[in-house]
Amino acid sequence: MLEHNLPIDDLVACHSCDLLHEKTALGTGEKAWCSRCGSLLYRTNNNAIEISLALTIASLLLFLFAQLLPFLSIDVDGNKTTIYLISTIDTLSQLDNVLLGIAGALFLVIIPLGVLLLDLLLLSALYSNKRPLTLFARQLLLLIGRLAPWNMLEIFLLGVLVTIVKLASIAEISLHQGFWAFVALVMINLFVSTTLEPEELWQAIDKH
């Protein structure tokens, strides 16, 4: 075993290649990269928690709008039907293909809504500085981390766009409020995921 002569808290290990680096203080928006493999080591962002909390509340509202307001309507030779996002789950559950219904419910509603609600709980607890939260907050953050790779809203949006193009040849499509709420939701989600670093949340929990 080789010796390192610095305290552990002054060191950071690259998550891609495991090389140890001495931490240096960064200015707002700056990033530290691994000197061996070039992966991102860490970054800082002042009041990331505050901004993320505000955006999470906005996302929850947009999520409700996207699900409950008219999403789009298709018009085939004067036969007009309006679709709600939430009703896709209902339709799928009426088919024989139970697995596809479950996959749809998981990827379109349960996982994205779950992550948003967990984010809201965690961020508001950290923001309001309530005392007895550490254990609870740790569990929340662990769960958020596990769910994150399966949150595919932006991919679903591309799926919506492809579907619209496919249908455009046989029907007249018009987009409604639900669709635009969904677009805004995806944009905000992408922004939050680039602003908020899990390490920052762990450090915030540690400080309590």
């Binding site: 075993m1 950071v12 495991d18 680096h21 240096t24 061996r36 981390g145 762990w202």
Partner: peptide
């Protein structure tokens, strides 16, 4: 850029960065 004076990995130093939260600690 975070500097590294000796090329040493966490494993070689007897440390481990947690796979879930990234916290560096002795292992």
């Amino acid at each position: 850029m975070a500097g590294h004076r000796q090329a040493l990995t966490a494993m070689q130093a007897g440390l481990a960065a947690c796979h879930v939260c990234g916290k560096l600690q002795s292992c």
